[in-house]
């Protein structure tokens, strides 16, 4: 039960970081923290309910996080090449 509360707090901390960080890479790190908090709650529920499927879904989350990081870091490098910055406050050309 403790870990459920911890995972909720970790998720909220990650959301706070994703909102306040100013560099795209650090926003990404906070998103990884949120994914990990979701994984922790999946594993804890799997243990509390005695069902293994939670662990399988946690493995899928890890695999999809790897794919997301590959694409996201590729995007960040491509943006840095063109704009010489990864600050999310300066990347505003799509703002209406």
């Amino acid at each position: 039960m403790t870990y459920l509360v911890v995972s909720a707090l970790l998720f909220a901390l990650g959301a706070y970081g994703a909102l306040t960080r100013r560099t795209a890479i650090l926003v990404f790190l906070s998103v990884e923290l949120m994914l990990n908090a979701a994984n922790l709650s999946l594993i804890t529920f799997s243990r509390l309910l005695g069902v293994l499927d939670g662990q399988v879904v946690a493995l899928f989350v890890i695999a999809i996080a790897a794919a997301e990081v590959a694409v996201g870091l590729g995007l960040i490098i491509a943006i840095f090449r063109r704009r010489e910055t990864t600050s999310v406050d300066e990347l505003r050309s799509l703002r209406g």
């Binding site: 039960m1 509360v5 995972s7 707090l9 709650s41 243990r47 509390l48 309910l49 005695g50 662990q55």
Partner: peptide, 17 residues
Amino acid sequence: LVYAVSRFQAPANPASL
């Protein structure tokens, strides 16, 4: 989120993993 997980009732004897 803490309110949501605090309402969760775990079964008494979960199966072994």
